[in-house]
Each structure stands twice: as structure tokens, then as C-alpha cells.
Design a protein around this nucleic acid. Sequence first.
DNA 1: TGTAAAATCACCCATTTGGGTGAAGGAACT
DNA 2: AGTTCCTTCACCCAAATGGGTGATTTTACA
Lengths: 204, 204
Amino acid sequence: MANIQVLIVEDEPLIAEDICEHLSNVDYSVLAIAYNKSQALKVLEQQIPDMILLDINLGGNLDGIEIAHLINQKYQVPFIFLTSYAHKSILDQAKVTWPMGYIVKPFSEKDLFSSIEIALYNFSQNARPHNLNLERINQVLLSPLTEKEFQALQDIYQGLTNKQMAEKQFVTVNTIKTHLKNLYDKLEVGSRSEAMAKLRNLIT
Amino acid sequence: MANIQVLIVEDEPLIAEDICEHLSNVDYSVLAIAYNKSQALKVLEQQIPDMILLDINLGGNLDGIEIAHLINQKYQVPFIFLTSYAHKSILDQAKVTWPMGYIVKPFSEKDLFSSIEIALYNFSQNARPHNLNLERINQVLLSPLTEKEFQALQDIYQGLTNKQMAEKQFVTVNTIKTHLKNLYDKLEVGSRSEAMAKLRNLIT
DNA sequence: TGTAAAATCACCCATTTGGGTGAAGGAACT
DNA sequence: AGTTCCTTCACCCAAATGGGTGATTTTACA
């Protein structure tokens, strides 16, 4: 997990300290502890963490949810709510911020660790539509894609040119072209744009 | 929340019963309880639940993870792991199955409820069809797109070639090329694939 | 009615992409 | 040892795309 920087946003110092300790036990680094909204934003302006643990209730109001919205707008960092609230009204406000997890207090070190690991993995694989999945795509195709073909598919999906793909994979453009030819055959398309459009339909 | 059908896969009857009770308390329907892998698959063949709670350890092995892979391949139903395991090796196997959550035993009703709510919401959002909207796109751009440029954008988004676009709009390919040139300028991209990728990011 | 923006189209040129063929090396499996 | 599949790469050619300039007509609207 190589030094994941976590920001803790929690208004109760004792709990923050507790979280901090748990994180150290499982080898995460604590970038900072913010005790309120303004402190949290200040930290974010200076350095972007890899993950944010976010208490919803900060000093009596739902600042945590506001912070979540801001994170989505400006920073796109995965975050997990860590709170004692689990009422439907709060949850409804919380879920529309796309949290990667929601841990209810009191929680154990295991809870923390597993939620963070899952969250980081899901987020890293695909920030938004966590859907580009070889298994799932192959299931729809007559002939399954190889790993290189799948990699090529992901790259064109990102809008890369053949040259960029070649540099990224440390192979020649000819190799990329070969993979693309095979890919197009399997997807039954005739151009990268068609492939992108088809992929969109496959994964939604 | 309108009658969400949940499948419980758990080998210990007492725990399964406990989960069942918790779910009833928060107004979910239990579609079935499966005590092992084969039972789980049998249920899935007959009826697709809206959500699956999945114990990893079923009768001494990691069948839960295998089930997760199968769900991804065949059914695409959101699932949450519900287990006492939280060791890194297990987690690493579990996370690659894209669980929508991971709850460590023992857990509370609040844990269950919030995790399921978040999972269902995130899952439904990921599957949402995003439709293109001129005004929405123009808000993000320095210079707004004209209608023809927007039409062209929609067409390349569908994977059409310039020739197909020309035929569809009853104009020559040269005209299409002109629109595309202007479009690329405004989107600040250099190719149709880049435009498609950029559009994806704009509309999410 | 004048003018600015948008739409239409043409021509040219360079680059990119798609398609076909072939071939060498490696891994995996029998 | 033989076979199959994957990966890598080359060469060639045709088609599509991207970029530039410029011109005419339509539309919008002040």
C-alpha cells in the first residue's frame, strides 16, 4: 500500500487521535487532521491526499456533506464517511455525494482497513464508471479479448493516439496496430470511434 | 425504498437468521438465504436479486469470492462482502471482484443499512444513461458550440464516420469536416477519439 | 437594411488510421 | 517435441482524418 496519505476530518480530538492510531497500525500515513470545515479546505488547498476520512457532523452541523460536495467538484479524491449517523435522512444527503464507503461508529480497525482498501482499489481502477472490466466485456463477445487488446481498448477509450499508446506500452506503433486490428475484429467494428461507442453500450 | 430484494449467502444459520431480522427491521425483503455456493447459484438462476450479501467463508473455503466473480460475469448485481476476515491476503482477493462494500463482523444494523443504501445508490448511478445536452456542455466551454457542431459531436459520439454524418445531414463531407474542425477547436482536442473521451468527462 | 455569425462547399496537403500479409520469438499445454 | 496462442514487429497500400485557406449563401438580429 506504499504510503497512502490520509486526511482525517473529525471534530472530536479523542476520536481523531484514535483513528490516527488505527491508521498507523495498518501502515497508512496521516497527512493531517482537520477539526472543522475550514481547516479541511485549507489542507486540501495545500496538498491532495490519497484518501479522506470524513465525519459528517462537525461542530453541530452537517459540514461533512458540504465538504464532500466540494471534494467532488474540485479534487476528485475518494472519501469515506465515518460517522455515528445512520438515519435515512442523513444517508440520503450523504449518498448523493458518491462516498466510496460509509462506516458507522463505533468501528474496529478491521472495518477501517477493509473499507479503505476496497475504496482505494475501486477508485483507482476507474474513478467514475467503475465498469471497464475485462471479465464483463469478454462475456458479451464471441471471442475473448487478450490482455493487450484490452489494454489497447482502454487506451483508445481514453482518447490516446496509436503513437501515444506505443510510447506508453514501450512497443512500436506496428504492434499497437496489430492489437487494434484484432480488437476491432472481436468487437465487430471498423474504427476506434465505433469501438468507443460500442464499448459504451456494452458497459452500461 | 420500495421492496429491495436481498439474497443472503451465509453458511452459519444463526448469523443468516440474524441478518435476516436486521433486514426486515429496515424494510428490505429477503429473497432467499443460501448456505453454500451451489445454493446461491441455484437462486441466481431462478431470480435476480437487487443486492447480495456475501459471506466469503462458506464451509471452510473462499467460495464467496468465486461467487463474486460469477456475479460479475453473469449477473452484474451489486454485492457486499459480509465477513469476519480482514487480512490483507483475503482482502486482495476480495477487492478485485469490485464489491460495493465490505462489512466486517460483528456488525450493527446501522452498518448494514448504511452500506446497502450507499451501495445501491452508487450502483444505480453508475448504470445511469447520460444524455447529451447542449446547454450543459456549453457551460463548461469557453466558446459555445453551434447547433451543427453539437450535432456533429453527437454523431461522432455514436461512432459515425464523416461520410455517414454527411449522408445523414444531407450535406457534403467537406461541410462536416468544417464543423468538426471548429468543434475540435472549441473542445480543445485534436481528434474525434479525444473529443469522445473529453465528452465523457464533461457529462459525468 | 446592414452586418455579424453560421452554414455550406472546394481544394490542397500531411498525418493517421485501417486492412492485408507475413514472420519470428516465447509461453503454455499435450 | 509438437502445437497453439499471444506478442512483437515489418512493409505496403488505401481510406479516413486533421489542418489551412478561402469563398458563397443563409440566417439572425439590431
